[in-house]
């Protein structure tokens, strides 16, 4: 078709033909286009050309990514300084790297457990505790959980930012402890893991729970996201700590709402 023929088509017809080529022709316009095509050789020729051109362009093969580009990109990007996260947060690891880590047999025997007393306010979001020996009065408050046992001390903080959540652990235990976080019961799911340096001994994600086994200075973050269909009301995120197969701490952090 030559240019003269194109010029005989009015803007409305070329617009309809373009819409058809791009797959956005309204049902209400189909009859109008059909009539125009039936009565105009120029319209038919223009349509054929546009369909042919679109077929050529759409049929062009996508280029594969050059080797090493992904690594180049990732290596060049420094994420913004983590907001509300501690300075030690440096190394990030995908959960898969921990999947089949050290067996649970490394857990050692538990010592005498004694908890420090706390105020009534600090107990507001606690759901219960159990220890092998001694009185259990762990500290807790909304958004955070204080752990002050003979076997393990430190804190667990839940941080929310624009809908994303990070559960930050900063614990210290001389012997190995087994930490369970009950995500599903709180309407949450696992979204990622970050560790300070050496990595944890075990990281398991199953059945809506996350289990971490480690000892010594333990600074790590779990990234959490809401389960689909969960409402925004106030919820409790349960955390338990065990040693030598005996639960020594149970607490919960209230959030949402």
């Amino acid at each position: 078709m030559n240019t003269d023929n194109v010029n005989t088509l009015n803007e409305r017809i070329t617009d309809l033909i373009q819409s058809e080529v791009d797959g956005v022709l309204a049902a209400s316009d189909r009859d109008e286009l059909k009539t125009a095509l039936a009565s105009s050789a120029a319209a038919r020729a223009f349509r054929d050309e546009m369909l042919h051109l679109a077929k050529i362009l759409n049929g062009m093969k996508e280029l594969d990514l050059p080797a090493g580009l992904n690594r180049r990109i990732l290596d060049s990007i420094e994420l913004p300084s983590p907001r509300q996260l501690p300075a030690w947060l440096r190394n990030w690891f995908p959960p898969a790297s921990y999947g089949l880590a050290v067996a649970a047999g490394m857990l050692l025997s538990v010592g005498v457990v004694k908890l420090l007393p706390s105020t009534d306010d600090e107990m507001s979001s606690l759901v219960g505790t159990m220890v092998k020996h001694g009185e259990v009065l762990p500290k807790a408050s909304r958004g955070q959980l204080a752990v002050d046992l003979a076997a393990v001390t430190g804190s667990v903080l839940l941080k929310e930012l624009d809908g994303a959540m990070a559960l930050q652990f900063d614990l210290d235990s001389a012997e190995s402890v087994d930490i369970d976080i009950q995500l599903a019961a709180a309407g949450l799911q696992f979204g990622g893991f970050a560790d300070d340096n050496e990595g944890v001994s075990v990281l398991e994600v199953s059945g809506g729970n996350v289990r971490v086994v480690n000892q010594g200075s333990q600074q790590f973050v779990l990234f959490l996201r809401p389960l689909d269909g969960v409402n925004d009301g106030v919820r409790d995120l349960g955390v338990t700590i065990s040693q030598d197969s005996m639960r020594i701490f149970k607490g919960s952090i209230a959030f949402g709402g």
Partner: peptide, 27 residues
Amino acid sequence: ELINRCRLGDRVALGQLVKEYERPIFN
């Protein structure tokens, strides 16, 4: 969600976001 996690410093999310868009952007 991935962006929010990146804002928190999550490099796993960064990797996922890059993987999703690097090819179409390159092309």
